[in-house]
Amino acid sequence: MKKIRTIDAVGQILCHDLTKIVKDIEKGVKFKKGHIIQQEDIDVLLDMGKENLYVWKHKEGMLHENDAAFILRDICMGNGTVASDVKEGKIDIYSDIDGLLRINVDTLNQINMQDELMIATRHNNYPVKKGDLLAGTRVIPLVINQEKLDVAVKIANGDKLLEVLPYKDYKVGIVTTGSEVYNKRIEDTFTPVIIEKLKQYNLEVEHHEIVNDDKEMIVNAIKKLKNNGATMIICTGGMSVDPDDVTPSAIKESGATIISYGAPVLPGAMFLLGYFEDDLPIMGLPGCVMYSKSTVFDLVLPRIVAGVKLSKQDLAKLGHGGLCLRCPICAFPHCEFGKGV
């Protein structure tokens, strides 16, 4: 830093906070470090008794915190994101749409391993609304070596750290399985639960088939939905390992490739996910989805709706953080359930 006369300081950058004190009226920081001196600031500074100031002396290869913040911003901002103005070397990133937040976690960790840089984010695969805060960035010192930002840019390698995937407009079909519902002995209370969850993503059920616990009926119902234009199929009932629960085998015989029958999530261990050759997703939902507030379905659905094709490994990763604590008052998704990856 260097010492300079206040009257010559317009355009210079303060190296430290300046406090203004007026008895019984004002006491606090008037100008913060990093502030760029404006013409209108000069009289205020002189009234504060500041005849001289300590300002940043530019050196080749060094960046002011605000200039460095713009570089971190550009590393972060992918599709579906917007940024705040810079303030004291800090920039916040927000969602510009409703969608699924995707984070390159490996790149994030590598950048945060670099001294004097930081990027803090929400959890990966988090469903967000337009205007939601996604991340905050800043550099730690007032000035930073350009080389450290160059390293961060090299780590990112042209990829964006954050993006928000928009939700797709699926045509949902439901196959409800169970003799008790098929024979109208009880009311179907499962489908209304699914309908409410789909509404969160502006989806509606366009096709609905109710069938008996009969493999051939289930297979035919699935094929009928597919032929009628369904682009997502959800099956309920008959998902346990009891001998008369034939929904999993029926899904397989309908032509779907089973990604996994079973998931390391509680509630939701008996969840099934498969895909047809045209990438049409089909899910078999265990009974817990009907009566538990938050289940594996709540973790998987936003990814499916965002067009993410899930693998066996993706489902396996749900085990870390996949234990719902069944809190008396459910706060999901603002809790640890499903936040392991």
Rank of each mutant, 00 (worst) to 15 (best):
residue 95 S to T: 11
residue 222 I to Q: 11
residue 329 I to W: 01
residue 18 L to F: 07
residue 63 L to Y: 06
residue 71 I to E: 11
residue 15 C to R: 09
residue 42 I to E: 15
residue 238 G to S: 08
residue 22 V to E: 15
residue 338 G to T: 04
residue 111 I to Y: 02
residue 179 S to W: 05
residue 218 I to A: 03
residue 126 Y to K: 06
residue 82 V to H: 06
residue 130 K to V: 12
residue 95 S to Q: 06
residue 22 V to S: 09
residue 125 N to M: 12
residue 233 I to Y: 04
residue 226 K to A: 14
residue 281 P to K: 08
residue 54 Y to K: 11
residue 324 C to N: 05
residue 103 I to A: 06
residue 83 A to V: 11
residue 15 C to T: 12
residue 28 G to V: 07
residue 138 R to P: 00
residue 139 V to F: 09
residue 41 D to V: 10
residue 52 N to C: 09
residue 20 K to M: 08
residue 316 A to V: 01
residue 284 G to T: 01
residue 305 V to A: 02
residue 198 L to K: 00
residue 321 G to M: 01
residue 194 I to P: 05
residue 5 R to W: 02
residue 41 D to G: 14
residue 285 L to A: 03
residue 115 D to W: 06
residue 206 E to M: 14
residue 251 I to C: 08
residue 85 D to S: 12
residue 78 G to Q: 13
residue 185 R to Q: 14
residue 2 K to D: 00
residue 300 V to W: 03
residue 3 K to I: 15
residue 158 G to W: 11
residue 25 I to P: 06
residue 85 D to R: 09
residue 131 G to W: 02
residue 28 G to I: 01
residue 307 G to I: 03
residue 324 C to M: 00
residue 133 L to G: 04
residue 1 M to Y: 13
residue 233 I to G: 11
residue 19 T to A: 10
residue 211 V to A: 08
residue 172 V to Y: 01
residue 83 A to G: 07
residue 72 L to R: 12
residue 139 V to N: 08
residue 86 V to A: 12
residue 54 Y to P: 10
residue 186 I to A: 10
residue 126 Y to I: 03
residue 38 Q to H: 08
residue 141 P to F: 10
residue 28 G to Q: 03
residue 159 D to S: 10
